[in-house]
Each structure stands twice: as structure tokens, then as C-alpha cells.
């Protein structure tokens, strides 16, 4: 698979947290996403279609998710409920929407978000794509951006140009 420019997603995560959650995030080194995740996590997932296709997910340990949604909403959540799940979906929606606007010259649509919860999550994808995981940390805990993306039309340079390790 061509290298994918993930910078728009990283910038979108940073901006979303600064503006909506009220905290800055620090990016840690990315790595191939593990095929099987063993954490009590909440994962917000959104699909991308159009001239670039893929899936964007943000994976939160429960403690981080509760802190993030509490900060965002201005009320304290102590357990995962419908509002917390809704909030995780909204965060991935904001990140995906903001990132797609940063791919100049592309026409990308996003799906409505889905939130997955559970102890084990297996990531699979077609053979011509790979998952990339970018861990972040902030004062509320750690979380990860997980994505797979491939370009399917013109403007390959824009999507592929800078490569996975460009920032």
C-alpha cells in the first residue's frame, strides 16, 4: 500500500481536544496497530468514502473516555452511559470531518459514527491496506487514533505525498 498522509487526522485530533475538551494533547510515536486489542475500551469508528476511502477510529480506555466527555460536556460522568457513548461518537465525527477538509482537492464523505465497546477488539482490513495506530496522551489519560486509508482516484500526491512518518 502507498504511504498515507495521516497528518490531517493528527492535526484534527489536536484541534478537537484543544477547542472542545479544553486540553492539549501530545502525540507519541505511531506504530502498526495490534491485530487484537485487550482493553476495556470505547472505540468511536467512522467510515470515509469518495476519492479516499478507509476507516478512522479513536480508541479510549474507559477512564480516559469518562474524563474527556466530562470535560467536553461540563458535567462529571462516573460510568459509561448513553451520553458518554454519544460523546465518543461525536469526537470521532469532529475529527473525521475536520480532517477530510484538510485534504485539498479531494471529495470525501463521512459516515455517521458508530461506537464499539468491549474487552477484545480484532482489527481486520483488506490485504491492500494496513492499520496505523497513533497514540496520544493528555492530562486526562492516553488514547489512540487508529486508521486505515487509501486513495482511489486522482490527487494521489495529496493523500500519499508525505508518508506515514511525516510529522
Amino acid at each position: 500500500m502507498d504511504k498515507v498522509n495521516i497528518n490531517p487526522f493528527i492535526e484534527a485530533v489536536q484541534e478537537a481536544f484543544e477547542r472542545m475538551v479544553g486540553c492539549s494533547v501530545t502525540r507519541l510515536d505511531e506504530s502498526p496497530a495490534p491485530q487484537q486489542l485487550h482493553f476495556p475500551d470505547l472505540i468511536g469508528v467512522i467510515g470515509l468514502s469518495g476519492t479516499a476511502q478507509g476507516v478512522v477510529a479513536i480508541r479510549f480506555p474507559v477512564a480516559t473516555a469518562l474524563g474527556v466527555i466530562s470535560n467536553m460536556a461540563g458535567v462529571t460522568f462516573e460510568k459509561v452511559d448513553g451520553a458518554v457513548i454519544d460523546g465518543i461518537g461525536e469526537i470521532v465525527n469532529i475529527v473525521a470531518g475536520s480532517a477530510k477538509g484538510r485534504f485539498k482537492g479531494h471529495s470525501i464523505s463521512i459516515s455517521l459514527p458508530t461506537v464499539v465497546s468491549g474487552d477484545i477488539c480484532r482489527l481486520t482490513s483488506s490485504k491492500d491496506t494496513v492499520w496505523v495506530e497513533v497514540p496520544f496522551e493528555c492530562k486526562l489519560g492516553t488514547f489512540s487514533l487508529v486508521l486505515t486509508l487509501k486513495q482511489v482516484a486522482a490527487n494521489r500526491q495529496e493523500v500519499a505525498g508525505e508518508g506515514v512518518n511525516s510529522r
Binding site: A73, A83, D86, G89
Partner: peptide, 12 residues
């Protein structure tokens, strides 16, 4: 807005 959290933020 279909997000209840977003509605809550805007209400605030």
C-alpha cells in the same frame, strides 16, 4: 443535532 452531548454544549 443528533449528538446529545453537542446539544448539551450548545445549550450551555
Amino acid at each position: 443535532d443528533d449528538s446529545q452531548i453537542m446539544r448539551r454544549i450548545i445549550v450551555s
